[in-house]
Amino acid sequence: MKQTPVLEGAFVSDPEPALVGSRCRTCETVAFPASFTCPNPRCAQKDVVATPISRTGRLASWTTVHFPPPPPFVAPDPFEPITVVEVEFASEGIQVVGPLAGASAEGLRMGMAMETVVEPYYSDDSGEVIGWKFRPAEGDADG
């Protein structure tokens, strides 16, 4: 089946799944998704390079969405509530939201280690749309 990333360049699957952002060569600010420039107003250089983000981070918050979002969200019928999590990547100084993979919200607790995976978001006639998700990780977070 044809696979299309939900956002080109925002993640990689090989060798391991990870988010990809941009890092400023001067002030080290990391942005996700990647930007063409540095968002730090006090940084004059603005020269950025693509950078992989740590595979694991810590759970900063979560919520379960009980009513289906509108398009372009593709909701299964019947709709099953989805859980959106916020994961902190301390080494990069950012937190990122994404869907929870492979677990129910029941077992989530603040600060637990979470890892990035790449999974299908939905499929339609033209194939699968894949994107990043987060799931509870074994062991400790990198950051």
Binding site: V6, L7, E8, S61, W62, T63, P71, P72, F73
Partner: peptide, 29 residues
């Protein structure tokens, strides 16, 4: 050349109240 983040966030599945709920859970904690 690229979809805006506002389209991507819907594919991820983050309606406006989800943003508020994420902050509220931190507040509870």
């Amino acid at each position: 050349p690229r979809p805006p983040v506002d389209m991507v966030r819907w594919q991820v599945g983050v309606p406006n109240p989800a943003y508020w709920a994420l902050e509220m859970r931190k507040r509870m904690e």
